[in-house]
Nucleic acid binder design. Structure first.
Length: 449
DNA sequence: AAATCCACCAACCGCCGCTAA
DNA sequence: CTTAGCGGCGGTTGGTGGATT
């Protein structure tokens, strides 16, 4: 609609607000409340446009505003939410009482420069690592969060003579988008066959009608793996036929466009399901199979929300996984045939120097949200992924685990193999936020209304 | 001490979608 | 159905003040 009428007026004052103007605005809103901003200048005696008044009130004068430095928890939350939704400052601000979108936006834009500096360190790690030849293309694609970081990564790759790695499985940049997640609303938490999500708005939601899958051993076209609920409901997959295989989830929309899911390495008797908020995978180790079909028997709300807190699931094992299986994974990893190249479940076994007992402990390997992971905490998470990160955290807090000894052990892990650091960083870089092309109206907080 | 640089952040700009005329 | 007005949002600008040269 273009410029507001009020903004064309010659008389309106611009620039910083004086204390006198603030007082006038406060007095007016105290007396009349707010609702129609276009009336405010006239009735309050301010030589400002209504839009300017609104901004001043919302960002500065309203009584519940909270100013001052961001707390570590606030920072953590901002980072996590930004990972989820990108530059949707209003949405992020809605999760931080008293903070404004403007303030958060400013904070992020200042802070991101530090991340760029960090990216240079990462690129040096890449150069030092042999791993990079096996990394898939999508790790280098631009994203709303890490666009500049990834540019750095990519340029570094090209200047030292290495071609940017190509994936034989992942879709191209042109056809690959992050799933527009919050168009889907959970409508049934406990169906036997599928956790169901229904599109909230058929005008903006994209119908996903099939899951396509390909294992590393396959050639030729990607085959259809699961038949979806005819209502276009998404979100279930069985790993029954994918034993020992790295595979790539690719969702195909009804228009034929492919959408990339996060790659996951899995073994049978487990299952994974796409986390519809983050595009990560949520793994429920307590599910039961029926009729040989392993499905998402239940994802209750608390588990679901917990999965958001935990961040993307990268790798999952369930039940027994013998050393031969690990060897297979290792072969794929080393040969580059593993498309995801971030097989942290295997890394756990490799770098901890001990066989992991998958027969006795269900394993869920979560990574904390992007940017939230110091190298040390990532290592902790990997090392103890079989215990479940939350339980591990509780053990730390209750002093059941000696944190200093843990840190020493983890330091040794890093000293023994520096490529693990690079691996983790790559893994984090692959967690793409929602693309800018999806400014949709339905927000994650609507999912459980 | 003066000049310059730079980070911060309040405010502006322009676009979007909704709604009522 | 079209369009103007509006609130809301995200990108960007430019003033300010502290740090550095």
């Amino acid at each position: 609609m273009g410029r507001h009428l009020c903004c064309n007026q010659q008389k309106v004052k611009r620039g910083l607000w004086s204390p006198d103007e603030d007082e006038k605005l406060i007095n007016y809103i105290t007396k009349y409340g707010y609702g129609c901003w276009s009336e405010v200048p006239e009735k309050s005696g301010l030589q400002r446009c209504g839009k300017s008044c609104r901004l001043r009130w919302i960002n500065y004068l309203r009584p519940d505003i909270r100013r001052g430095n961001f707390s570590p928890n606030e920072e953590k939350l901002i980072i996590h939410l930004h990972t989820m939704v990108g530059n949707r400052w209003a949405y992020i601000a809605s999760h931080l009482p008293g903070r404004t979108d403007n303030e958060i936006k400013n904070y992020w834009n200042s802070w991101i420069k530090k991340k760029l500096a960090k990216a240079e360190i990462i690129s040096k790690n890449i150069e030092a690592s042999k791993v990079h030849n096996n990394l898939p293309q999508f790790l280098f694609e631009e994203s709303a969060t890490l666009g500049n970081e990834n540019k750095l990564l990519k340029s570094e790759m090209n200047t030292d003579g290495h071609a940017a790695p190509q994936s034989h499985v992942l879709p191209s940049k042109e056809t690959c988008e992050t799933f527009p997640l919050w168009d889907y609303k959970m409508i049934n938490h406990s169906t036997a066959r599928n956790s169901q999500y229904e599109m909230e708005d058929s005008k903006t939601a994209l119908t996903i009608d099939s899951l396509l899958i390909r294992t590393d051993s396959e050639t030729g076209p990607i085959r259809e793996f699961n038949t979806w609920d005819p209502s276009g409901i998404l979100i279930n997959s069985s790993s029954k036929n994918c034993k020992n295989s790295d595979f790539q989830y690719i969702l195909q929309r009804d228009n034929g466009q492919q959408v990339q899911g996060l790659p996951v390495s899995n073994t049978w008797h487990g299952y994974s399901s796409l986390n519809p908020i983050e595009g990560s995978f949520y793994y429920n180790p307590n599910s039961e199979s029926s009729n040989g079909v392993h499905t998402t028997s239940s994802i209750n709300e608390s588990d679901f929300m917990r999965s958001l807190d935990m961040g993307p699931l990268i790798y999952s094992h369930h039940e027994t996984l013998d050393p031969a299986d690990h060897a297979n994974v290792a072969t794929m990893w080393e040969s580059g045939s593993s498309p995801n190249g971030v097989d942290l479940g295997y890394s756990e076994c490799l770098y901890s120097g001990e066989q992991y007992n998958h027969a006795t402990e269900n394993s869920c390997s979560y990574l904390p949200p992007l940017y939230d992971v110091s190298e040390e905490s990532a290592a902790i998470d990997i090392k103890h992924s079989g215990n479940n990160s939350l339980r591990y955290l509780e053990q730390i807090q209750s002093n059941e685990i000696n944190i200093s000894q843990e840190m020493d052990a983890i330091q040794q892990i890093f000293e023994q193999n520096s490529s693990l650091v690079t691996t983790i960083q790559y893994c984090l870089g692959s967690h793409s936020p929602v693309s800018d092309s999806h400014h949709l109206h339905h927000r994650p907080q609507d999912a459980f209304d």
